[in-house]
C-alpha cells in the first residue's frame, strides 16, 4: 500500500532502510485526527421503512447518533521505532490502527504515512479458504500490488518462515488456526512494509513461533522500519515497543515510556484522570 494519505511535503521522501533514523522525517504523522462513527440505534434496512419515514416526517430519517471514536489525536512515530497502543475495550485502539492503515478516513485531521503500510488487523484477510497456501500467497501478494515474478521468488521464503512447506498443496480451509495465523503473519512480514501495523497477533502460534516472529519484528526495526502494535498482552508488548500510547475514550491519556504507561493502565484510575484533565496533555516523546 504505497500511500500518501494526504499529500504534503512528504512527496519523494520514501524511506530507505539503513539510513540514519534521525535524519528522516517521521514515518507516521497523526495530526488532529478525529474519527466520527455513526452509532446505529436501528438500521434503516429496507426501502419501505425509509420511505415511510420520509412520508411521515418529510425528512429522510436518521437512525444514528454520531459519536467520536477518536478525538483530536496528534502524535508522530519516528522511522525505526515501535509504538504500542493500549487501552481498555472501546478506547479506540482498533479504530486508530484502521485509521493509520487508511481503511478508515479520518473525519477531521490527517494521517501522513511515509512508505508502504501493511496491516495485520485480522489475520488472513485477503486469503481464500478454498485455495492452498501457495495460491493464497499469490493472491495476497497481488493484493499488495507486487508483480507476479516477484511473488514467485518470495513463495519459498514465506513457506519456510511459516513452516508450512509440507502443507503447501493443502487448501487453507483444512489448516489449524495456528497454521493459518502463521501463514498470514509470514505473508505480511514478507511484503517488506515500511510501516507494519499489528493488532493482537503477538500471540500467534506456539511459543517457538512467537519467539521467531518477535525476532523478525526486531529485525524490521533494526533495518529502519516502523511498527505500531495494539495488544492486551502487556508483557510481550513491553519487550517490543519503545513507547506506549494509552488511550481512553478516544483520547490520549499518556504517551511515553512503556513501563510507566503500563503502570498507569493497571492502576485503572486514568479514566478518572482523563476527566480531571490531568493527563490530557500528552508528554511529547519521540521514542527511543
Amino acid at each position: 500500500m504505497e500511500q500518501e494519505v494526504v499529500v504534503g511535503e512528504s512527496n519523494g521522501c520514501a524511506p530507505h532502510p539503513g539510513e540514519q533514523a534521525t535524519s528522516r522525517p517521521p514515518a507516521l504523522e497523526v495530526k488532529n485526527v478525529t474519527v466520527q462513527y455513526r452509532a446505529y440505534k436501528e438500521r434503516p434496512g429496507t426501502f419501505k421503512e425509509h420511505f415511510l419515514q420520509f412520508a411521515r416526517t418529510g425528512r429522510w430519517p436518521k437512525y444514528y447518533s454520531r459519536f467520536e471514536a477518536l478525538q483530536n489525536l496528534s502524535f508522530t512515530v519516528e522511522a525505526g521505532t515501535s509504538l504500542g497502543i493500549i487501552g481498555s475495550n472501546g478506547a479506540g485502539k482498533s479504530t486508530l490502527l484502521k485509521t493509520l492503515s487508511g481503511v478508515i478516513r479520518p473525519t477531521k485531521g490527517e494521517v501522513l504515512a511515509r512508505g508502504k503500510v501493511d496491516s495485520l488487523i485480522s489475520l488472513g484477510a485477503g486469503f481464500d479458504k478454498e485455495l492452498n497456501a501457495v495460491e493464497n500467497i499469490y493472491l495476497y501478494g497481488s493484493l499488495h500490488r507486487i508483480p507476479k515474478g516477484e511473488i514467485e521468488a518470495r513463495v519459498p521464503r514465506i513457506l519456510e518462515f511459516a513452516e508450512l512447506e509440507e502443507f503447501q498443496e493443502m487448501p487453507v480451509r483444512y489448516f489449524s488456526s495456528g497454521m493459518f495465523a502463521r501463514l498470514g503473519f509470514s505473508c505480511a512480514l514478507d511484503m517488506d512494509p515500511d510501516i507494519l501495523l499489528v493488532d493482537e497477533v503477538l500471540s500467534v502460534g506456539d511459543a517457538r513461533f512467537r519467539q521467531k516472529s518477535q525476532e523478525a519484528m526486531q529485525n524490521l526495526l533494526k533495518s529502519g522500519r516502523t511498527i505500531v502494535v495494539v495488544s492486551h498482552g502487556l508483557r510481550a508488548m513491553a519487550d517490543l515497543v519503545d513507547r506506549i500510547i494509552l488511550l481512553s475514550k478516544g483520547r490520549i491519556v499518556f504517551d511515553g515510556a512503556p513501563d510507566e504507561a503500563i503502570k498507569i493502565y493497571l492502576s485503572e484510575d486514568y479514566e478518572v484522570a482523563l476527566d480531571g484533565k490531568r493527563f490530557v496533555e500528552s508528554t511529547p516523546s519521540s521514542g527511543a
Partner: peptide, 9 residues
Amino acid sequence: MNLIQQVPM
C-alpha cells in the same frame, strides 16, 4: 467486507 476492513483499496 473482511478484506475491506483491513486493506485500503
